[in-house]
């Protein structure tokens, strides 16, 4: 992997994307590695969208949505959290470290948080690229039940 990782950040229009704007307005500096993809809601991000970003060469993917309870579409972020957890399992199966994918809650007003989150995630990916272990606490994947797709349960 490259020295300078490329990170795709799927950002919800109503919160994280707005926070990214605010980070800009406030001139909060963060690494240049972040590439933002605007989406109407994190609930729009399917597992495969995330996997494809990796296929196309992303070193890390962050999905950033509203805080629980303040989704513009009521529960899109709740669905997204589950889908990201599922996508982490799928990544792990392929041998890609699931720490390369993370969901973050960033409210529209949290410009500085967007910047620090971006910086932290970039640092994590850099460490992973260098062969180090990420320090992130990943939600450990439970073995899925035979016929239960947790990610698709409402």
């Amino acid at each position: 992997m490259k020295n300078e990782p490329t990170i795709i950040a799927f950002c919800c229009h109503y919160c994280a994307f707005t926070a990214a704007d605010l980070a800009g307005t406030m001139r909060k500096q963060y690494p240049t590695n972040i590439r933002i993809v605007r989406i109407p809601c994190t609930g729009k991000v399917s597992e495969n969208m995330v996997l494809q970003a990796f296929v196309e060469g992303a070193d890390g993917v962050m999905v950033a949505g509203c805080e629980i309870g303040s989704c513009h579409f009521i529960q899109g972020n709740v669905r997204a959290v589950k889908r990201v957890a599922h996508a982490k399992k799928l990544l792990e199966e392929t041998g890609v470290n699931p720490d390369r994918l993370e969901f973050y809650h960033v409210a529209a007003s949290q410009g500085p948080l967007f910047a620090t989150t971006s910086a932290e995630f970039t640092e994590r990916i850099k460490q992973l690229n260098a062969g180090g272990k990420a320090s992130a606490d990943t939600t450990s994947a439970e073995t899925p039940q035979e016929t239960v797709h947790d990610s698709s349960r409402t």
Partner: peptide, 18 residues
């Protein structure tokens, strides 16, 4: 189709890894 695409992505990622 979704599962097909997921597997497609997974195989591509894994073949690169391995």
């Amino acid at each position: 189709e979704k599962e097909v695409d997921i597997l497609d992505s997974q195989l591509k990622l894994a073949s690169r890894e391995r």
